[in-house]
Computed example of a mutant assay.
Amino acid sequence: MPEVKVSRLSKRFGGNAVLHDITFTIADGEFFTLLGPSGCGKSTTLACIAGLERPTSGSIAVGPATFVDSGTFVPPEGRNLGMVFQSYALWPHMTVAQNLAMPLKIRKVERRRQDELIAEALGKVGLAELKDRYPHQLSGGQQQRVALARALVYSPSVLLLDEPLSNLDAQLREQARAWLKRLQAELGITTVYVTHDQEEALALSDRIAVMSEGDMVQIGTPKEIYETPATARVAAFVGRCNFLTGTMTGQAEVRLDCTGQTWAVLPGTADIGRRVSVAIRPERLEILSADRAAPSGVNVLTAQVLTSSYIGSRYEYDLRLGDHVIQVESGRAGLAGEVTLLADPAACLVYPTTDVLPKDAEALITVSH
């Protein structure tokens, strides 16, 4: 399977710019995810690759074939790309086999060969016995597999998936996610996946491109994106974060606004005197048990328990830290009153306050007064 190269891709709808100089390369056989909130430009990027939207500027190439460049625009039917839409877009009056036959008929594939390819594609998704059923006779998960089989039936060079699991319930979505990952690995097909679900992106992807307001703000492995987010925007969107403002008082010290306490961070994160935001994920804050002394080299904080929630595998606590409310995850039950928190400096991510958080991330972070 070929690699995908997107260079300086821009797209405008009238006077509204929705993509700004987007550049990335997807390796042969890679599962690459475009992640971001609604309106960030991820689906528009996918549509440009598919040929459903014509970019305002930039270039797109798949292997040796150039699809978009100055003076060049290959229409969708000339790109040999497989696409699965969020709605699945199955023909309701056609059987499963007839739905899969449509792209083969368009390509003028001989009838006997059509039957072979349909059987092979349905076998890949485990639905060979349902070829004579109609879409309304299938579950949501089965319809999703039919849509994927239709995208694979003509052996596309690249598979494009636009939030294909979003219509499934939570349990079925987890099962479909695991199955999709196994199938993609078995086929080795280069895949571009669009989602706003951070957990889905982390679980499925070889690499993730985080998008915000038409910009690509970070590309990296799931571990890189989650553990070392390049900006406050990425930290806010991928997972949850507590954000505390302060001032750098040393090479590795921040005086927090909420408590006036000096907090140790990794050295070299910002200049002395610089206003910063310190981000730390709820699971990286530890609640110290009463029978244990605080270890050296970590930040020790005192907070008040406000609320607790049991969510199965862990407890989530809202704690008041000075004039802020922060979130902490813990395996310990029944905490109340005053508690002691530990924060490892290595877990504290420091960003300049000029690295503003997007409006669409405000509901995903903990910054409460």
Score class of each variant (00 low, 15 high):
Q98N: 07
V109H: 02
L127G: 07
E110L: 06
D162K: 11
Q143A: 06
Q98S: 08
L19D: 01
R112S: 12
Q144E: 10
E30Y: 07
K124N: 10
T72I: 15
G39E: 06
F24P: 03
V74A: 11
E53P: 00
V18T: 14
V68A: 02
V158H: 00
R145M: 11
N80F: 08
S57N: 13
A147V: 07
T44A: 07
T72F: 09
Q114G: 04
L35N: 09
G29L: 08
L138V: 06
T45M: 03
K42N: 04
L52V: 02
M94G: 01
A47C: 09
L117R: 15
G29R: 02
I118R: 04
H93A: 01
P156K: 14
S139E: 09
L148C: 02
S43Q: 12
L122W: 12
D132Q: 14
E53M: 11
P156E: 11
V62D: 00
F73G: 02
A128I: 15
L35A: 08
Q142I: 09
L161S: 01
V68R: 01
A47D: 13
Y134G: 03
L46W: 10
G141V: 08
G63I: 00
I118V: 08
R112I: 03
S155I: 01
A65T: 10
L90C: 10
P75Y: 04
R54Y: 02
F85A: 05
E163S: 08
G41E: 09
G58F: 05
S70C: 01
P37K: 14
I106R: 12
A65V: 03
D69P: 01
A128W: 12
L148A: 12
A27D: 14
R133A: 03
